[in-house]
Write a protein that binds this DNA or RNA. Structure first.
Length: 334
DNA sequence: CATACCATAAACAGCG
DNA sequence: ACGCTGTTTATGGTAT
């Protein structure tokens, strides 16, 4: 695999004269609890023209992000499906069981031409469907419990969730169940809830995640997931990880992680105009680009990365929205 | 090298 | 009696 640095071709899309401020403003929204969120990562299809939405949906290498799944800001509500319950923090995992599945490691949808896709193939053979998931038992248990409607599960429910989502454990011998129980007992992260005496359904207890250990579990989960999904790296640092989940489809485990390494970074001088003075992007007068196996990614404030095609689409969309807003303003004033 | 973390195995007790 | 659940101990591998 060739890792030699590449210089940007003169016609590289990253040098398109996009407006930094426009781009930046189109990418961020403020959550009601103060956090800055990308407006759309990619943008909500509802806010885009059908063609643009389809284009982004099918092309973005980043996970599809629905901010409403973790925030309750007004701006966010405008993007959210009505059925999504509000959450009070950014660490909620409600997005997980909206999809009926959790954090499957899955290749990101690619928009690259086949020739480029071929270059993404790892040099070593990928693990098969029966390969062991990278998550620790603590993470598996955590995901299982978080994915349950009541945030509590009996041991048997944890077994079933793991088997349903990671076919490896369907094939594996029973020792892993022992490990699950061992983890539940030993780990302070999980606590046992005695079943109501009136509930004579089954035996054993319900298990839940101890709230004080939840952030740590989440962090471990993010790190594990990010490690196997470099595109999501910076994204995971600030928001829950909305992944293109599989809704019960175990196919993700047949599509194992495709780790990409950062080839090199590059700072590209950008044209500075007066209206970009307040733009955080323009402060340094440089655009930071990361290269993952020849794919260029623009580094946005907050270390978020966007592939350049998405940047262009967002820019076009933002410009279209701005133009539409101007027209509406004119219509309103007229 | 020490330490922490994790996976795995096994023994055992309690319960339905 | 049997199987499941929960606890505990032991051991080995791996990463830091």
């Amino acid at each position: 695999m060739e890792n030699s640095p590449q210089s940007l071709p003169p016609s590289s899309p990253c040098l398109a004269p996009f407006s930094g401020s426009l781009l930046f403003s189109s990418l961020q929204q403020t959550c009601s609890n103060g956090c800055l969120l990308p407006t759309s990562f990619p943008p909500s299809p509802a806010s885009l023209s059908p063609a643009t939405a389809e284009s982004i949906h099918s092309s973005s290498p980043l996970p599809h992000y629905t901010p409403s799944q973790c925030c309750d800001g007004q701006n966010i509500h405008s993007l959210s499906p009505p059925s999504v319950p509000d959450q009070d923090d950014l660490t909620c995992l409600s997005w997980l069981h909206q999809r009926g599945n959790l954090l499957p490691l899955q290749p990101l949808p690619k928009m690259a031409p086949l020739s480029q896709l071929e270059s993404l193939q790892p040099s070593h053979p990928l693990p098969s469907a029966s390969s062991k998931p990278p998550y620790s038992f603590s993470s598996l248990i955590f995901m299982a419990i978080e994915d349950s409607p009541d945030k509590r599960l009996p041991v048997k429910g944890i077994y079933e969730w793991i088997m349903n989502n990671f076919p490896y454990y369907k094939m594996a011998s029973g020792g892993w169940r022992n490990s699950v129980r061992h983890n539940l007992s030993l780990s302070k992260s999980f606590c046992r809830i005695q079943k109501d005496k009136n509930q004579s359904v089954g035996k054993g207890s319900l298990w839940c995640v101890c709230p004080e250990y939840r952030p740590a579990l989440l962090e471990v989960l993010r790190k594990t997931h990010t490690y196997h999904n470099p595109f999501a790296h910076s994204f995971l640092l600030s928001t829950p990880s909305p992944q293109p989940l599989t809704n019960g489809n175990p196919a993700f485990s047949e599509n194992p992680p495709c780790p990409l390494t950062l080839d090199h970074e590059e700072l590209v001088p950008m044209e500075v105009s007066e209206d970009m003075e307040k733009d955080p992007l323009s402060d340094s007068r440089y655009i930071e680009l990361h290269y993952y196996q020849s794919h260029q990614y623009l580094v946005l404030p907050g270390d978020t990365e966007l592939d350049l095609e998405t940047v262009e689409i967002l820019q076009l969309d933002a410009e279209a929205q701005e133009a539409a807003g101007s027209l509406l303003d004119l219509a309103g004033s007229g």
